[in-house]
């Protein structure tokens, strides 16, 4: 009897894993069939206004890239503070708040940036979108930096200090270097996450049908346009949305996997 229960239980567990995998497969196969069906290289050559995705893909990368330029240094500096300089209470509070911010609803961050950037500057803009994504990214980078630095043995810091290096030198030359791989992986995963975000961009950058490098006006976004296109009645728009989704997912998964690959390789 005990063995029977055991068997049933274990089978249920295996079944759950299969269900999980089935969903992954289902989504990926759908994307592959629908996306590849509407995919052609012309998509990379034309802008949305001419039925292509070029401006959207470039726009999405610029938004996420700019967000990284803002978010990575700030997040790393804050992570360094928490792990290396912070003593006691304050550092712990910041760590906790950053943890909470990591799970804050992304649409709320969009609304926040709308109120503090979009409204005062008079309209949606690439900058506003990048800021919203940066706010999403900062706590993730803080978390990674904090965790990875905490893995660096204390003796390594002491050895640096014992040689007569000042603390910031030890942090930059030794501690960060020792934690480099982990931090880079975390940053890549964070980048993969924000490049697929839609909600914080809806009313910050919005999207645009045209190619644009002007960050002070509505900025082309792949994800926002997918949402718009997918809700349009014409079959052609929806096909384009599928192609765009396919490209987006492939991008996100490649970035995500390469992040994991770096860590694995190093180990």
């Amino acid at each position: 009897m005990r063995l029977l229960i055991n068997k049933i239980f274990l089978s249920l567990s295996v079944l759950s894993a299969l269900i999980g995998l089935a969903f992954l497969a289902w989504i990926l196969i759908t994307l592959f069939i629908k996306g590849l069906g509407s995919f052609h290289f012309g998509l990379f050559l034309n802008d949305l206004i001419d039925g292509g995705l070029r401006n959207l893909i470039i726009g999405q990368f610029i938004l996420a890239g700019l967000a990284s330029i803002i978010g990575i240094p700030l997040g790393m500096a804050a992570g360094i503070y928490i792990q290396e300089y912070g003593q006691g209470r304050y550092a712990n509070i910041i760590r906790d708040l950053s943890d909470i911010m990591m799970s804050a609803p992304s649409i709320v961050i969009g609304a926040f940036v709308y109120a503090v950037v979009v409204v005062p500057t008079g309209g949606t803009s690439g900058f506003a979108g990048a800021i919203a994504l940066a706010i999403m990214m900062i706590p993730v980078v803080i978390n990674t930096t904090d965790n990875m630095l905490s893995l660096v043995p204390r003796e390594l810091r002491e050895a640096g200090i014992a040689l007569g290096a000042s603390k910031y030198k030890v942090i930059i030359d030794i501690v960060i270097k020792a934690a480099k791989v982990g931090i880079m992986t975390g940053i890549l995963l964070a980048f993969a996450r924000i490049i697929g975000e839609t909600a914080p961009l809806l009313f910050t950058s919005e999207t645009s049908n045209y190619f644009s490098l002007n960050l002070t006006e509505s900025f082309p976004s792949l994800t926002v346009s997918i949402y718009d296109l997918a809700n349009e009645p014409e079959e052609a728009s929806r096909d384009l949305a599928w192609a765009a989704s396919f490209i987006l997912t492939v991008l996100v998964l490649i970035i995500n996997l390469s992040g994991r690959f770096i860590t694995r390789n190093k180990k």
Binding site: P153, E158, A159, G160, A162, L163, G164, A165, D173, K180
Partner: peptide, 30 residues
Amino acid sequence: ELRQKIGMIFQKPTPFPMSIFDNVAYGLKI
């Protein structure tokens, strides 16, 4: 200054994450 005059070796080896040469040169460089 003090730590440059009084050096320390730790329980576990603490090679810095850099080349052998840079490890030895590190104290000199700083």
